[in-house]
């Protein structure tokens, strides 16, 4: 086991993937608690599909992928939140529309520019080779910013998640914090999606929160537990993917699924006791 890990860490691209992966897992787990409880799970999914479209266009135009995708997806997060709040189109339908349209545009752009092939596969399911040195620096900076903002706004995020009306009535700028949560989620999704893939990144947001809610009884407990579960699942996933030559994103999701099942069983036992 130790041999395997030291072998793993001798590859620079894996070290990069581990650094970015751990930070992204941490950010997505923290934000996921609020998103899942607010019934916004689908926003993460929608954002990743829009990110796919943005990456495809960036690649076709030979632009830096993250520099294009981050602002596009942050903008999309604003729009999706606005759509979820409006009464004309229901939130989930709006997100489905936006995400499928973005995938369609992305696929058309890719097939016009380079033809369907490895690119599409990598965007959809992720590639551990995707991170360049510049990407790592940008990812680390942004993740640390996300973590810092989350910790500083923790109490407000709790209030806005638990009871938006009460929070607003007592003078919390709830719109601002809803925006903050979805912008932070947008950045996290973009950072994680090239490794995890557009189809799988939203599981990093949803799984850890749901897993820890099986067992934990306080908000703080759920937040801390999700962060730990998320990082551990990512690390186990990346080791398995290396040892068994499986795609990274899918391995991480599979580990999350197993842990979710374990926690559900423990939760059921505790509940009965």
């Amino acid at each position: 086991m130790i041999d395997l890990i030291s072998e793993l860490l001798s590859y620079h691209f894996i070290v990069r993937a581990v650094i970015v992966g751990v930070l992204v897992s941490l950010c997505s787990a923290l934000l996921g608690v609020s998103l899942v409880l607010k019934r916004y799970s689908m926003i993460g999914d929608g954002l990743s599909h829009i990110g796919f479209g943005a990456l495809a266009i960036a690649a076709a135009l030979n632009l830096a992928p993250l520099a294009v995708a981050v602002p596009v997806v942050v903008g999309a997060a604003f729009l999706l939140l606005r759509m979820s709040e409006s009464r004309r189109v229901s939130g989930d339908a709006a997100i489905a529309l936006a995400s499928t349209s973005a995938v369609a545009i992305g696929v058309i752009v890719i097939s016009l520019s380079s033809g369907m092939g490895n690119d599409v596969y990598n965007y959809m399911f992720g590639s551990i080779l995707a991170m360049s040195r510049g990407d790592v620096i940008l990812s680390v900076t942004l993740s640390i910013a996300v973590l810092a903002l989350f910790v500083l706004s923790y109490n407000k995020i709790f209030a806005v998640t638990f009871d938006e009306t009460f929070a607003r009535a007592t003078g919390v700028h709830t719109k601002r914090y809803n925006m903050l949560i979805s912008v932070l989620a947008a950045i996290t999704v973009v950072l994680g999606m090239r490794m995890m893939g557009a189809l799988l990144i939203s599981s990093l947001i949803i799984f850890p929160a749901l897993t820890s809610m099986r067992v934990c009884r306080t908000f703080r407990g759920v937040v801390i537990c999700s962060a730990i579960v998320s990082v551990i699942c990512f690390l186990i996933g990346i080791v398995i993917s290396y040892a068994a030559a499986l795609p990274t994103g899918a391995s991480v999701v599979a580990v999350n699924l197993v842990v979710f099942a374990l926690f559900s069983a423990v939760g059921a036992l505790l509940h009965r006791a």
């Binding site: 109490n155 638990f162 007592t170 809610m213 934990c216 306080t218 703080r220």
Partner: peptide
């Protein structure tokens, strides 16, 4: 909602 009673009560102090 997974939150302790104390967490909920304390959030009243935010204002």
């Amino acid at each position: 909602f997974p939150a302790s009673v104390f967490e909920v009560v304390l959030s009243g102090c935010l204002s």
